[in-house]
Simulated assay, not measured.
Amino acid sequence: MRLSNYKTNNPVFSEYFWEDQNDSNKKMTVSGILIKSIVCIIVIAAITSYIWKLNEEGMSVKWLTIGGMLASVIISVIISVRHHWAPFLVPLYTIAKGVFLGGFSAFAHKNFPELPYQAIGVTIVTLFVMLLLYQTRIIVVTKKLRSVIITSAVSIMVVYIISLILSFFGIKSYIWGTSWFAIVFNCIAAMVASFALLLDFDYIERYKNKAPKYKEWFATWGLLATLIWLYVEILRLMQKLAIRF
């Protein structure tokens, strides 16, 4: 069964990613995705470091963090429905995520100085472990596995959205605390995020040298979204464990 026939409501794994594959002579390549991803990661790291520095100098970055988060969500939604705009929107997404991660990581560093660095290390190790598992076919991305991962990811995002909405009315969700329920939920979210990397690898392998060149920006967006999600879940889990123990 062709991957392009598989339907999902998750914008990162949207069908828009693979439409109109023959509208360009230049095709998507792995090297193109790799270069774009590395450049975006460097930009995110630079902005994160700058926001982090501002926080250490005494400047409040709360609203920058919230603004970066909301901007990245809005940009992601636009990318999912206007995929031809990706070459222009992904750089904006990169900036927004850098601002968000700067504030998010600075807050964690203030309370637990070593955790952000440890979370980065765990994220990198997880990336290469999942890549190894995929390349050696120890884990094969089947239609059933793909469905389970996407359904789990969407479900987790829905829980986060509902919890965020409830927080506006003063209702605190259990997933934000340090209870065992919150820790288990965080563990599941981190596992789903790591398995979502397999979908990114699978998409790239299936459509390399087939999809048009601009689709490299979509692949970069999907990979960045998954990696950042994984990092956030790992850092949140580490914070909860540090507070509890």
Rank of each mutant, 00 (worst) to 15 (best):
W18P: 00
M59L: 15
T29G: 03
S152H: 02
G177V: 11
L223P: 01
F104C: 08
S179D: 06
I74Y: 01
I78L: 12
L64V: 00
S14G: 09
L197D: 08
G32I: 09
T151F: 01
T178D: 09
A108P: 02
C40Y: 02
E15C: 05
F17A: 10
E57W: 15
V73W: 14
Y93V: 01
L127H: 05
G103W: 03
T220E: 12
A46L: 15
V184G: 09
V125T: 11
P116L: 03
A193H: 13
I183H: 12
R82P: 00
V129T: 14
Y16E: 12
R82W: 04
D20M: 08
Q21A: 07
L115A: 04
P91C: 00
S80G: 10
G222V: 02
L224Y: 09
T94L: 04
M28F: 06
S14E: 03
M238R: 07
A189P: 05
L34P: 00
H83I: 09
W217Y: 04
L115V: 13
N209A: 13
V90Q: 03
W217I: 03
S72H: 09
F100H: 08
V129P: 15
I74H: 02
S4Y: 00
T151S: 11
S167E: 03
E15D: 13
C40A: 12
V232T: 09
F195M: 15
I204S: 05
R206H: 12
L34H: 02
Y174K: 05
A190K: 04
S194T: 01
W229Y: 14
F17D: 09
L164F: 14
L92H: 07
I74C: 02
L54A: 15
A108F: 01
P11A: 03
L3C: 01
G103F: 01
S105R: 07
Y134P: 05
L237Q: 13
F104N: 12
P212C: 10
G103Y: 00
W180M: 08
R206N: 14
I139E: 12
W221R: 14
K26A: 13
M1Y: 13
Y231A: 07
N111G: 10
F128R: 03
I66S: 05
P87M: 12
K215A: 05
V73M: 11
L34V: 13
S147I: 07
N25S: 11
G222W: 09
A46D: 08
L127C: 01
I47L: 14
A190F: 04
V129W: 05
T48F: 02
A189E: 06
G177S: 11
I162G: 11
I66Q: 04
Q21P: 10
Y93G: 07
Y214A: 07
C187V: 12
I38E: 10
Y93R: 00
L230R: 10
G170W: 11
Y203N: 15
A196Q: 11
V184S: 14
N9H: 02
F168S: 14
L127W: 08
T8F: 15
N55E: 13
L237W: 04
A219G: 07
N9T: 06
M59G: 03
I234L: 06
V158D: 07
N10P: 00
G67L: 01
Y207C: 03
S163C: 02
I149F: 00
V158Q: 12
V99H: 09
T178N: 10
I120S: 05
D20L: 10
I38W: 14
E15N: 15
M191W: 07
Y160I: 01
E15G: 13
